[in-house]
Design a binder for these strands. Structure first.
Length: 434
RNA sequence: GUGGUUGUAGCUCAAUCGGUUAGAGCGCCGGACUGUGGCUCCGGAGGUUGCGGGUUCGAUCCCCGUCAGCCACCCCA
């Protein structure tokens, strides 16, 4: 048995890397449209960067170890603490609001499943220094565009939005005790995967009265702002805490993203530091894991870096998105790896092929030729396999006339071209500029 | 971390009741084809049936262990 990659880690063969690069390119293009600048940080961080604020869920699955200097370290499981540190260190000098993005490789030590490895790449977009709802709308819009740019529409991807301020206020108003709130959150987090009877039983089991359970289930079923009121007396006051969410939804509708959106109080998110808006993107059929998750974390920079700046952002992983693109046939066909293949008829032609290769490569063309003597048919077969657009056949007869044969491999056509005009002819045919 | 399930060629799969030399398609390499590719035809390489042990005259097949994938939990970047 040959050694293989560690469980949960991927080898990227050229076709795999092509998809990965397609995803990265698209992400970068969309982030740029929103005026976001790219940054990066270290893949290995002090363990305490995560144990401090991230919450049990992440800490329990850190890819951590002791380094040779005796330091407790961890591969980064998320980018936000690194970002918070970087921003806090230069907070005074950075023009607000800060719009930054990154595509870090993140790591978690957990048992892998489909769509969930020990390593993945994640688009992280964060908007720092703006507390208002337009920032929330901007971030959600960016997340939507980051999938829309691949050709995914509202029938493919849904956005579910909630707000911790609103949910907390609603629970308070319903008389849910402080100690029961974590239980309710946990139950809400599983709503989509749990039959309603079981959800109800869990809530009752936590000591919540039957009438309150009914109203909690009503809240959980709400899919739009207008579903929320009218659930009972006393809720109106709590709904006031939902103003930011309501305005965020309104703004997104004004941008034309309304058909992607669902209100969903079942969106809780595991990370402890979220303070307001929380949202996730899912495939519309509900077959895959979340594509993206994010929210507002207004206190994190304060607690991590001592700088009081409101912030929000999201992370979007390459694994689930890649699966969705494959399922929907949205993975682009691989392009050709070369523009021109050079074929030598006789060993005497080889030096001329080499010289031409140098000239064409300098001109920016992608050029390949056979590295061992082969029959012309064989060489052209390789040219074809490489999806080269053009081939140049260099033979003694043509050479004697100061010419070479240029073939268009997409058809049958070929013509003699003066050696001195080859470069110009090929560069204009390919349309590639070095 | 817990439970279930599946591991046969690079890929997708086959192999009778447990039966002796584990096959096919695709892909790869070579030939037909020494100045012309895609098509076709012919040939070849490639397997310790994930690994280790057990039962048996005999194991791809049955049993145990282990590793890996998948699924469900846990949890969710």
């Amino acid at each position: 048995m040959q050694p293989q990659a560690l469980p949960g880690f991927r080898d990227f063969y050229p076709t795999d890397l092509a998809l990965r690069e397609h995803i990265f390119r698209t992400w970068r293009r969309v982030a740029a449209r929103y005026g976001f600048e790219e940054y990066d940080g270290p893949p290995l961080e002090p363990l305490e960067l995560y144990t401090a604020k991230s919450g049990e869920e992440i800490v329990g699955q850190l890819y951590s170890f002791t380094d040779r200097g005796g330091r407790e370290v961890s591969l980064r499981p998320e980018m936000t603490p690194t970002l918070a540190r970087m921003v806090a260190a230069r907070a005074n000098g950075l023009r607000k609001p800060i719009r930054w993005f990154s595509i870090p490789q993140l790591f978690r030590y957990e048992r892998q499943q489909r769509g969930r490895l020990r390593e993945h790449f994640q688009l992280n977009c964060d908007l720092i220094g703006e507390p208002g709802h337009l920032a929330d709308a901007e971030i959600v819009a960016l997340a939507i565009d980051a999938v829309r740019a691949f050709g995914l529409g509202p029938e493919d991807v849904r956005v579910r939005l909630s707000d911790r301020r609103l949910l907390t206020a609603l629970l308070q108003n319903l008389g849910v005790a402080e100690t029961q709130v974590p239980v309710v959150w946990q139950v809400f987090d599983k709503l989509r995967r749990t039959p309603e009877e079981i959800t109800a039983a869990k809530l009752s089991g936590a000591g919540i009265p039957g009438a309150t359970v009914e109203r909690l289930l009503g809240l959980a079923r709400s899919r739009s702002w207008s579903d929320l009121p009218g659930l009972g007396p006393g809720l109106d006051a709590a709904l006031a805490r939902g103003e930011p969410l309501r305005r965020t939804l309104e703004s997104l509708e004004a941008m034309g993203y309304g058909d992607y959106l669902d209100l969903d109080l079942g969106i809780v998110r595991g990370l402890a530091y979220y303070t307001g808006t929380v949202f996730e993107l899912f495939d519309a059929r509900g077959e895959l894991r979340a594509i993206c998750g994010g929210g507002r974390y207004d206190n994190l920079l304060q607690s991590l870096g001592g700088v009081d700046l409101p912030a929000l952002g999201f992370g979007m992983g390459d694994v689930v998105l890649g699966e969705l693109l494959r399922e929907r046939g949205l993975v682009p066909e691989p392009g050709s790896s070369i523009d021109v293949f050079l074929a030598a008829i006789t060993p005497d032609d080889l030096p001329h092929v080499l010289g031409l290769a140098r000239e064409l490569r300098d001109a920016g063309l992608r050029v390949e030729y056979a590295l061992a003597p082969q029959a012309v048919g064989k060489q052209l077969k390789l040219a074809d396999a490489r999806s080269a657009r053009l081939a140049v056949v260099v033979g003694p007869d043509d050479r004697a006339r100061g010419e070479v044969m240029v073939k268009d491999l997409r058809g049958k056509a070929q013509e003699s071209v003066a050696r001195s005009a080859v470069r110009e002819r090929l560069t204009s045919a390919v349309g590639r500029v070095g």
